[in-house]
């Protein structure tokens, strides 16, 4: 653990939390990612944009360890994680959500949020409850409130509405106390009012928390992020501040296709 801490400290000095080096992912003949380089610094708020099939979720899966890249390296906090399975990511402070909701549908909202914390703690093999559990329970209920699920803490996750499930999905990532959060289309399926609350929630996150966001809703993406990276066909085609991306003609032609997409995105 000491050496881990030392490498983590040196990574912190150099500032880069996540470093992707020439990541290539090929599914058979299909190249989903064609050599992506990406550096994310601590406290970054980065949004990934791009049309369907651009490779955004594949990139997420590579960072989260759900897919091993065909070639290239994934370095998180100075540690080469390319070959490490997904279950080691939480120890590095990485948490993610899924585009298609992945909840424990047979368990209550509170149990979902409770379980999300035990994985990292090493308590999950315990046969007895202890004081730590009371703390986890407390935090689970607090997080339920943060993601507007306070009145349904006792409801089974499978019985929640779609919007509530999306909220729980975000809560499960945030409740782990992560340093690096990856949200895969958090606004999909949310109503206009819920989207506004989501933006407020993302803006209210601790400044130390690094955020990587995939979002189709331009309004949400451009308001929550400080930096935007646009992908197309497995490659990075543009990156810059939200303002730069809004006026980038290349982005217009490949992603938005028309002026109309931008008009509505203005906050």
């Amino acid at each position: 653990m000491n050496t881990d801490a030392a490498t983590a400290a040196s990574a912190e000095r150099s500032g880069s939390l996540l470093n992707l080096e020439a990541v290539v992912v090929a599914f058979g003949g299909l190249q989903a990612l064609g050599g992506v380089d990406l550096k994310v610094w601590k406290g970054d708020r980065l949004a990934l944009l791009g049309p369907n099939g651009a490779g955004k979720t594949t990139l997420f899966n590579v960072i989260a360890g759900d897919i091993k890249p065909t070639s290239g390296r994934v370095i998180i906090k100075g540690i080469d994680c390319t070959e490490l399975p997904a279950r080691f990511r939480p120890r590095l402070g990485v948490a993610r959500t899924y585009q298609k909701t992945r909840l424990f549908r047979g368990l209550t909202v509170e149990d979902n949020l409770y379980l999300a914390q035990t994985g990292r703690s090493g308590r999950h093999l315990a046969l007895l409850r202890s004081g730590v559990d009371a703390e986890f329970r407390e935090r689970a209920r607090a997080m339920a409130e943060t993601v507007w699920l306070a009145d349904v803490v006792g409801v089974t996750a499978g019985d929640l509405s779609h919007g509530q499930q999306r909220q729980l999905e975000i809560g499960m990532a945030l409740v782990t106390g992560p340093e690096f959060v990856m949200l895969d289309e958090p606004a999909s399926g949310l109503s206009r009012g819920e989207r506004e609350r989501l933006v407020q929630l993302l803006l209210s996150l601790d400044a130390d928390i690094t955020l990587l966001l995939i979002e189709h809703d331009m309004d949400v993406a451009l308001r929550a992020a400080q930096r935007v990276m646009v992908m197309n066909e497995g490659e990075t085609v543009a990156s810059g501040t939200p303002d730069e991306i809004r006026v980038d003609p290349l982005v217009h032609s490949i992603y938005l296709g028309s002026e109309a997409g931008l008009g509505g995105a203005d906050p």
Binding site: F88, Y114, L115, D133
Partner: peptide, 30 residues
């Protein structure tokens, strides 16, 4: 057992092993 940390984790694995792995659980050990 169903309401112990171990039992809850087991039910989590029943519902979504992929999510459990990404939360740091050792699914096969469980």
């Amino acid at each position: 057992l169903a309401v112990t940390p171990f039992g809850l984790a087991l039910q989590g694995i029943r519902d979504d092993p992929v999510r459990m792995a990404s939360l740091g659980f050792n699914v096969s050990l469980h």
